[in-house]
Simulated assay, not measured.
Amino acid sequence: MGTLWFWIVALMLTAYIVLDGFDLGVGTIYLWIARTDSERSQALRTIGPVWDGNEVWLLASAGTLFFAFPPLYATAFSGFYLPLMIVLWLIILRGVSIELRSHSSEVLWRTFFEAIFFFSSALLSVFFGAALANVVRGVPIGADGYFFLPLWTNFRTGPNPGILDWYTILGGVLAVTALSLHGSLYLALKTNGDVEERATQLAKRVWIATLFLSTIGIPATILARPASLTDYLRHPIAFIFPLMGAACLIAIRLTLSKGFQLRGFLASCGYLSSMFLGAAFGLFPVILPAVGTQGRDLTVEQALSPPHTLRVGLAWWSVGMCLAITYFCIVYWLFRGKVSIDDHGYEH
């Protein structure tokens, strides 16, 4: 049962990364791609019908973690309380900026909300990448099951890390470049005219940075946490994840050259999915690794809820997922196709 719920959560987080990833990417590249007020409205209309729905996957993942692995919440909040609060405020600011920008006719206020949209989107990308890197690297869990992380120590991995070190900074930068690429491909798919052309050109440049950081990211992960290679060596079939990531990156570049926009975006979805699921496989059966000598890794079995809770939760989760997937299929179908600069439809 623990294995099932671990991969349920992993797949839900993958859905969040893929879906909310493109609108975070749109926000990160927003000020460079869209240069006039009408172009920025066009860019926002591409994510307007879906951005808030995409964030449902983050809430659903958090709720699933809470009932499936409650001890993980107690342990994680002890050391990540401040970063989690910052993420919450950034999500709020991002939503407010998207909503209020379209309700203001004053140039000053529209520019202010556009800057907040960019700022919050870029910082969320950095925080999510650094957070995943913190989990992969491990945290100094004490004998009591709690831990404290300063913002930084000596910027090295080891028994006394900080939230920021060379590895977590690498994770944050990789997340920004990967989501910027994802957002560029989405804008190229959903827009036309100058915005489409700039998005395509930016995607070609960001692809190079993503390829470079992904290439050094895998050996960096093994260096930061050598145990992450254990499951791969025990189950060599898992090497399919990095191979799929590499194949998807190559496919992105080929589609950019040939103008196959939908295929390029789907390849980006595959790249993000394979990278995250590969990281999850490198962790399993650990759900939060420990560094140092005081504490032990928090495993899936240690953090698992009682069997009755899991059985009841699985029944309700199945119903909820069916409704959520149906909703998303309908929304994406209704708002399919490109968004014209002259289109005055949905804008939030």
Rank of each mutant, 00 (worst) to 15 (best):
M1W: 03
W5Q: 03
L11I: 13
V26R: 05
Y30T: 01
L31R: 14
I33W: 11
R35M: 02
R35P: 02
S38G: 06
E39V: 00
R40C: 01
R40I: 00
Q42W: 09
G48F: 00
P49T: 14
V50M: 04
G53Y: 06
G53T: 01
N54R: 00
V56I: 02
L58I: 13
L59V: 15
A60L: 14
S61H: 00
A62G: 13
A62W: 04
L65T: 04
P71S: 06
L72N: 05
Y73D: 10
T75H: 12
A76R: 02
A76V: 15
S78D: 01
G79Q: 12
P83Q: 07
P83C: 09
L84G: 01
L84N: 01
I91Q: 03
I92V: 13
I92W: 09
L93C: 02
R94K: 00
G95E: 05
H103K: 15
I116L: 13
S120Q: 02
L124I: 12
L132P: 07
N134V: 14
G138Q: 12
F148G: 07
L151T: 09
L151A: 08
W152V: 09
G158F: 14
G162S: 04
T168A: 05
I169S: 00
V173G: 11
V176Y: 08
A178W: 11
H182W: 03
L187A: 11
L189C: 08
V195W: 12
Q201E: 13
L202K: 10
W207M: 02
T210C: 15
P219Y: 10
A220F: 12
L223G: 09
P226R: 13
L233G: 08
R234E: 14
L249N: 00
A251D: 01
T255N: 01
L256F: 08
S257L: 03
R263P: 06
L266A: 13
A267D: 03
G270S: 03
L272D: 07
S273W: 08
S274W: 04
L277E: 11
G282L: 10
G282K: 06
V286L: 09
G292N: 00
G292M: 05
T293S: 12
T293R: 03
T299V: 06
V300W: 10
S305F: 10
P306C: 06
P306Q: 06
P307G: 05
V312Q: 02
W316I: 15
S318P: 08
V319K: 05
A324H: 08
A324E: 09
T326I: 12
F328Q: 13
I330H: 13
L334K: 15
F335G: 01
F335P: 06
